[in-house]
Amino acid sequence: MAIEHYFILSAILFCIGMTVIITKKNAIVVLMGVELILNAANINFIAVSQLDNIKLGGQFFALFVIVVAAAEAAVGLAIILKIYKYFSTTNLDEINQLKG
């Protein structure tokens, strides 16, 4: 498979992720959109990494991204759980006490 296919796939994933982040109202779904963007970047990293066989920088980058994404999801879900405790909803439109 040519490397362009991977780039196109990752661009599509990025666009889907961006659309999800912008249009969806539920905080958890927005976090899912972020995961899509991170994985789009991962595909790019791994696809490019096959071009240099010695260094493997991209593959290691992808591994680190997976670890960081897990940490971010853990923190994110903890905060969203707190939000649910206070607001009884995870709809971002209804979480709007702070203004100005």
Partner: peptide
Amino acid sequence: EAGVKYLLFGAAASGIMLFGMS
């Protein structure tokens, strides 16, 4: 509430930055 706003903006921003890095 501030925490969840910061989290969502921050996660999106770092995702976008990561895509640029790739």
